[in-house]
Design a binder for these strands. Structure first.
Length: 424
RNA sequence: GGAGAGGUGGCAGAGCGGUCGAAUGCAACACACUGCUAAUGUGUUGACCGGGAAACUGGUCCGAGGGUUCGAAUCCCUCCCUCUCCGCCA
């Protein structure tokens, strides 16, 4: 959510930002409604002030006659007040609905664009592997090596269901220990295991609701299943006022993740690239309200993830997401994409974004500055490692002529070997 | 699943329908005192919306939403949440 004052004073910027994101929102209607809201509020405040004065007069009236005369005057005022309060309520309802639909303003450095195809590459790392045999895709590789079972996966769990077995399961556990150890060595990150089954408020606060309701699983008790640990981690300090000295707060958060993938029925239907249920380690940062701080942490979070891919020796690139590929609250987003040989293109493994105070305003997470001023903190997040998606890139990039899969050097200690699978 | 208790400021915790934004304690901050620390004394300290250059000023907020009343933290209703006990289960 943006500050209504900011919208009022920077109408053109907000309209241009929404256009860049290709999100339809009627700012003029919002501002007209806001004028109405403020006029009503002022009138109500005035009447209440009158009522407060009268109340004191009634309490301290010297005689009954005087008392009764003020009371009867207040009875008519009460009726007027009631009417105005009712219309304010209606206005507020509409006002709130509009307010949560106003997107955050993207950064200057965000490129224009219609879709993810217009994302702009800003960095490439690693060498794209050349094979002297016909490389297979991850679907076949994992199956042939007994590392995944899709048929039984869908028998048991339905569409996009999967089992990981043998070295497939062991590889996930190895990756967990790999990433945990990297972050455990950093005292600035607080390890956090977060709930996946979460109330509505943190979803509203992080911006997943109300817009993306159809992408979420919902329980019969009205809770939702989170598609990322960001939701629970951001909810952690909801409705709290932090101290400046405690910032930045960095979470290394783990959770199972659930996504309905409602809008992507045709995409990535095979294998384990796009699935309903997975696990993810997520970096979440709360920092003081400064654009420079946000940018600094954004670059750092992105680099943290890049280092993991570098250790795994997976070729990747970093793209700046274009306007249309940004979420409602995001100011700027980098996707990190690792090379997928079977598709001869990079595919997303990480997504790193910052929000300024868009989320924290909704979540009501603030901090006290030294001078006593209370401000909304800034928030950011980025994937640390998501599994099993990363198995697709590992399997394909490390595949061998004999059909087996090499173990990345950084994982050999955890796996206890340097090659996975079986000879065909 | 059954029974009960409760939700008040950063925390703890009082609070007769009007003088309650709310006693008191703790914490924090400032000043004083003290060789340092500790202790002590004095004072200050809520958030949000609006007006104002500012000083200041009007309004709102005691879980949420309704109701009664001239007036609600206080009375009534509904909902949400938390806790305790019993049962069940890991």
């Amino acid at each position: 959510m943006l500050d209504i004052k900011f919208i009022r004073e920077n109408k053109d910027i907000v309209i241009a930002g929404a256009k860049k994101k290709h999100i339809a929102v009627d700012i003029d209607a919002l501002l007209a409604l806001d004028d109405k809201r403020r006029a009503l509020q002022a009138s109500i405040d005035e009447k209440r002030a009158e009522q407060n004065v009268a109340s004191k007069a009634i309490a301290s009236a010297s005689n009954e006659e005087e008392r009764q005369s003020v009371i009867s005057k207040m009875q008519t005022l009460k009726e007027l007040l009631r009417k105005e309060e009712e219309s304010l309520q209606e206005v507020m309802k509409e006002w709130r609905a509009l307010m949560v639909s106003v997107p955050n303003v993207p950064d200057m450095s965000v490129p224009d664009g219609e879709s993810e195809k217009d994302n702009k590459e800003v960095k490439q790392w690693g060498e794209i592997p050349e094979f002297n045999f016909e490389p297979k895709d991850h679907v076949a590789l994992l199956l042939a090596n007994g590392m995944a079972d899709y048929e039984r996966g869908s028998k048991v769990a339905g569409f996009r269901g999967y089992f990981l077995k043998n070295d497939g399961a062991r590889l996930v556990w190895a990756l967990e220990r790999f990433v945990e150890e990297r972050f455990m060595n950093r005292s600035d990150f607080t390890p956090l295991i977060v709930p996946s089954m979460v109330r509505r408020e943190p979803f509203m606060g992080t911006g997943y609701l109300p817009q993306s309701e159809e992408d979420l699983y919902k329980t019969q008790d009205g809770d939702y299943l989170a598609g990322t640990a960001e939701v629970g981690a951001m909810g952690y300090y909801m409705d709290e006022i932090l101290e400046k000295k405690d910032l930045p707060i960095k979470f290394f958060a783990f959770s199972p993740c659930y996504r309905r993938e409602a809008g992507s029925y045709g995409k990535d239907t095979k294998g384990i690239f796009r699935i309903h249920e997975f696990v993810k380690y997520e970096q979440v940062v709360l920092c003081e309200a400064s654009h420079e701080e946000s940018v600094k942490h954004h670059e750092e979070l992105t680099l943290n993830s890049e280092k993991l891919l570098q250790e795994l020796k997976l070729p990747y690139r970093v793209v700046i997401n274009c306007g249309a590929d940004l979420g409602l609250g995001q100011v700027k987003k980098y996707d990190i994409e690792a090379w997928l040989p079977s598709e001869k293109q990079y595919r997303e493994t990480h997504s790193s974004s910052y929000f300024h105070d868009f989320q924290t305003r909704r979540l009501n997470i603030r901090y006290r500055e030294g001078n006593g001023v209370v401000r909304y903190v800034h928030s950011l997040n980025n994937t640390a490692l998501a599994m099993p998606r990363i198995l697709t890139q590992i399997a394909e990039n490390y595949q061998r002529a004999d059909g087996r899969i090499g173990v990345p050097g950084a994982l050999q200690g955890y796996m206890g070997k340097d090659v996975m699978g079986r000879v065909q």
